[in-house]
Computed example of a mutant assay.
Amino acid sequence: MAQRYGGKYSPDGAGDPAALGDTSPPTGKTNSFRSAQVDPVGARANTMFVPGGVLLILSLNDGATGLALGGIAAALWTGAAFLLREGLRAETAFAARRVARKPALPRKILASVLTGAGAALAAWKAEPGIMIAAVYGLTATGLHLAAFGLDPLQDKGVEGVDDFQQSRVARAVDEAEAYLDAMRDAALRARDRQLEARVDQFQAVARDMFRTIEEDPRDLTGARKYLTVYLQGARDATIKFADIYARSQDPQARSDYLALLEDLEQNFAARTQKMLLEDRSDLTIEIDVLRDRLQREGVRLDRN
């Protein structure tokens, strides 16, 4: 059976059991693909950058007016492409969460509007006329909306939980996600692939806690310090470590930081498990209370 080549100086070789000849089944702690996510920005979205460049090149020989109109249209299309990318990412993040607020800025809709405006200007440049420009603009807007859809236009929550509690959870998770994003950005500066994978692994455990809190907002009170104090400290420690490691490549600093991540991961996982057990205990109590009430009403229940 083919095995991946790896050694002391190979990327990820020192920490990869397969690279060292270890064929034992991988454990959950060494699975760096647990938090792997597919970038929602695919080829369709990236190709939206092409029309702007093509239009700008074709406008170079159209005189001052043609070049100005072509440049503005190309700028609108390029801006629409950037908005579309961010809108797709925001939509994916919204879909991944049980409780989430709709994006404050409907980026995909704005991208469609900019695409239509750029098409209208491009049509006006080729053949001046309000009707022609309007037809091309509306058509481009409609096709863009049909291809990429609308932004989430309503907040998402859990049934049976009041809006105030869901709003509290959404704000807390948004703040925690911002800490994780800053932590990830800082880890990238260290230019260490194994360390980046380790940070991703910790973030997957942290997001397990987020999903648990979203399912039962009552857990937010007991877990708030994890979402604020601990994650803020983890972010600050990651930024400090990245600055030191990028300059000195200090192995002791790297070892200390990895030990910190290990401690954080264990604590977050333990707290998440405790919340799940508490939820199960609450369910057991509710079932027992319901059984007692039914028995007082003379209803016999078979306990299987």
Rank of each mutant, 00 (worst) to 15 (best):
203 Q>V: 05
172 A>Y: 01
209 M>W: 03
172 A>Q: 00
120 A>K: 12
105 L>Q: 15
229 V>S: 05
154 Q>T: 13
237 A>I: 08
117 A>K: 04
195 L>K: 11
137 G>Y: 10
232 Q>W: 11
103 P>V: 14
174 D>V: 00
190 A>P: 10
116 G>T: 08
214 E>R: 05
227 L>N: 11
153 L>N: 06
224 R>F: 13
179 Y>V: 07
192 D>V: 05
116 G>C: 08
183 M>F: 03
172 A>I: 00
149 G>Q: 06
127 E>Q: 15
221 T>G: 14
219 D>Y: 07
190 A>L: 10
183 M>N: 09
207 R>E: 00
162 D>Y: 09
167 S>N: 15
140 A>D: 04
122 A>F: 04
102 K>S: 10
107 R>K: 15
190 A>D: 12
133 A>F: 03
157 G>E: 11
216 D>T: 14
124 W>V: 02
222 G>N: 12
196 E>Q: 12
104 A>Y: 07
236 D>T: 11
183 M>S: 11
173 V>N: 00
198 R>P: 02
206 A>C: 03
156 K>P: 01
164 F>R: 12
117 A>S: 14
172 A>D: 00
229 V>P: 00
167 S>L: 11
233 G>F: 06
182 A>W: 07
208 D>S: 03
223 A>Q: 10
197 A>Y: 08
194 Q>W: 09
197 A>D: 10
121 L>N: 10
228 T>R: 07
113 V>F: 11
236 D>E: 09
228 T>Y: 06
191 R>H: 13
153 L>Q: 09
225 K>R: 15
153 L>A: 12
142 G>V: 07
167 S>A: 15
180 L>V: 10
145 L>Q: 09
176 A>I: 00
118 G>L: 03
201 Q>N: 09
123 A>H: 04
163 D>I: 03
204 A>L: 07
136 Y>K: 06
221 T>Y: 13
160 G>M: 05
219 D>S: 11
141 T>M: 15
155 D>L: 02
119 A>Q: 10
166 Q>G: 01
109 I>Q: 13
160 G>A: 02
215 E>I: 03
194 Q>F: 09
162 D>G: 10
105 L>N: 15
206 A>K: 01
136 Y>L: 13
226 Y>C: 04
106 P>Q: 05
201 Q>G: 08
196 E>W: 04
176 A>T: 01
183 M>K: 08
158 V>W: 04
124 W>F: 14
